[in-house]
Amino acid sequence: MSYLPDDVPAPDINADDAPFWDHVGQRRLTFQCCADCQYVQHPPTPFCPKCHSTRRNWIDAPEFGEVFTYTITHHPSHPSVKPSTPYNIVVVDYPELGHVRLISNMVDGNDIEIGMKVRLVWDEQGGRPMPRFERVVP
């Protein structure tokens, strides 16, 4: 069973985002990385925001990240999540990649702290793999 229901709105994929979601389909979490200056960028952009190169590569996310911020949502702002409330939303930060950040969820409960170390896990939602996180117990 996935962390959020299968009928949560799925990504409406466009050409800039497509490689990200293709990789997700292969259970790879990747971020766009400039082939010229190695700046790591998320969400994907057509040009590198640092050096303006259009040569865009992709790098795999590290296994571990940390919770940058979070919320516990009690009010369903879409009917699909009614059975899931209260559920968490986290922003995961990768300090070693220049603080690139990803919005996701923790699959193992709402007891969350900012700065907490987390590990990437693969969930499945609406037939698609979804990158989510679990706590790393020190």
């Binding site: 969400p43 702002s77 939303i89 996701s104 979804m130």
Partner: peptide, 20 residues
């Protein structure tokens, strides 16, 4: 950017600003 928000249940300003 809803592609990177909605699939994770981030739908509207109450949750968006709550993170902040």
């Amino acid at each position: 950017f809803s592609n990177f928000m909605s699939p994770f249940g981030l739908f509207g300003p109450p949750q968006m600003l709550a993170l902040f």
